[in-house]
Write a protein that binds this DNA or RNA. Structure first.
Length: 411
RNA sequence: CGGAGAGUAGUGUAACGGUAGCACGAAUCCUUUGGGAGGAUUUAGCCCGGGUUCGAAUCCCGGCCCUCCGACCA
């Protein structure tokens, strides 16, 4: 993509009210636009990041054997009355149509997926079954905050699994953990699998927590990685020695980027979602549900991967792998590099704008592509390009023909 | 929802109760070009509604809205 054709622009200063790093950097860099507190639009570069996160999540969900659907956002009030949450879910958006008929705006989708599956699930032969979607959720947060970290409207991947018995559900639950670990690793986050409360749903759940001061949760974890719990479950104390000799347990603030629940029959009971076994006997379906907030994930990545100059996107989620910068004397070679790198299958943002070198280099740091490829009078005279990794201090001169392989090399 | 702070141009920031100014951005032209370049000309603003006052960006009241702390939170 040519930067001269990109309508979003960078800002030198962040909006004065934004104190959270992800909001400051993503707004300054033109990735997102705030419509109101907790509600954001995604601009071209931000959308590319979001789509990359979605792609990773889809790949891992599909590998888990889950099937994608797209459920409605407007829900009949009756479904929410059936589970009792029309009254009890405080952050549920409730709305009326012109005839005063009431609806819920999707805050989550158990109320839709469970009754939906009643239509299709009746036999043990229909199980197990796992469906997921990537879709907006709406929650009437009393206090939306911290940029993309807590919104009123946000993109979520929600997976629901359905099983003939609890053992099968718990087995799938373990496989889902594996998928979640893969997802967080691929988006460049070190997520700690954390024991957490099951809330009103079940005895326990697991959260995926990324330790950072920007977080609003608190976890206690073993530095050796064999135990972690949200402080809400109070099973252990900070400072207690780890049983396996990894030293004292530590406390840290963290962002919850994922949460998985062994629901059992909580919702299948409410909607009477049942199946008949081999002998014709009827049982409640056992369920699990598994969520990841994708916008929050993007915000978390920025919280963790940035420096004083801007964002440092991990490779798999970066909007483009390379940022080709055309400086005076290197314009023509830059054009060639733009075409040739794309021909080699590399996604390139090409800064072809008529701006001073200082502006272009500062913007490259702010936007945060993993590689910066500079073409100038100096590099052209040596038949080279200057290549710099965003997270490394020094640049190196590479022969033009070596650049593509250098960028695609996994290091 | 409780508490605190803030709303002035696209962004950031000034102005004692008395002419709304500066920087960046944007536009035009000239000169520049390896870390947010210089000159000239131009563009654009007091969150909304009341009140006090000769006069309100400024003081008072109400509302809206944003941020932060807390509470809440699949």
């Amino acid at each position: 993509m040519r930067q001269s054709e990109l309508f979003s622009k960078t800002q030198k200063s962040a909006p004065k009210d934004e104190t959270s790093m992800n909001a400051q950097l993503l707004i300054r860099a033109g990735f997102i636009h705030k419509e109101m507190a907790g509600v954001y639009s995604y601009l071209p570069l931000g959308l590319r990041v979001l789509r990359n996160i979605e792609r990773i999540v889809r790949e891992e969900m599909n590998a888990l054997g889950a099937i994608e659907v797209f459920l409605s956002s407007l829900h009949p009030k009756e479904n929410w009355q059936t589970t009792g949450r029309w009254k009890t879910m405080d952050d549920l958006y409730r709305l009326k149509d012109r005839g005063d008929r009431e609806f819920a705006l999707a805050g989550t989708h158990e109320e839709v997926i469970v009754p939906l599956l009643k239509k299709f699930v009746s036999s043990y032969k229909d199980l197990p079954l796992a469906v997921y979607q990537i879709q907006n959720k709406f929650r009437d947060e009393l206090r939306a905050k911290s940029g993309l970290l807590r919104g009123r409207e946000f993109l979520m991947k929600d997976l629901y699994s359905f099983h003939a018995n609890k053992e099968d559900m718990l087995q799938y639950y373990e496989r889902a953990k594996e998928a979640y670990r893969n997802i967080f690793f691929r988006v460049g986050l070190k997520a700690i699998e954390t024991e957490a409360s099951g809330g009103t749903f079940c005895d326990f759940s697991h959260e995926y927590q990324v330790a950072t001061e920007a977080g609003e949760d608190e976890i206690i974890y073993c530095p050796g990685g064999d135990f972690a719990a949200n402080v809400e479950v109070r099973k252990v104390k900070e400072g207690k020695q780890c049983d396996l000799g990894h030293g004292p347990l530590q406390k840290a603030k963290a962002i919850e980027v994922g949460n998985i629940f062994p629901l059992k029959d909580k919702f299948s009971k409410a909607f009477k979602l049942t199946f008949k076994d081999e002998k014709g006997k009827e049982h409640l379906v056992q369920m699990g549900c598994y969520g990841i907030g994708l916008g929050r994930l993007m915000g978390t990545i920025v919280e963790v991967h940035h420096d004083e100059r801007g964002i440092i996107w991990p490779r798999e989620v970066a909007p483009f792998l390379a940022h080709v910068i055309s400086l005076p004397g290197g314009e023509k070679a830059a054009e060639n590099a733009y075409e040739e790198l794309q021909d080699a299958g590399i996604e390139v943002l090409f800064d072809d704008r008529q701006e001073s070198p200082g502006v272009k280099l500062a913007d490259a740091d702010l936007l945060g592509m993993p590689f910066r490829v500079v073409s100038s009078e100096k590099t052209t005279s040596e038949d080279c390009f200057e290549v710099k990794k965003r997270d490394k201090g020094k640049a190196e001169l590479l022969r033009k023909t070596d650049v593509a392989s250098f960028l695609t090399k996994r290091t």
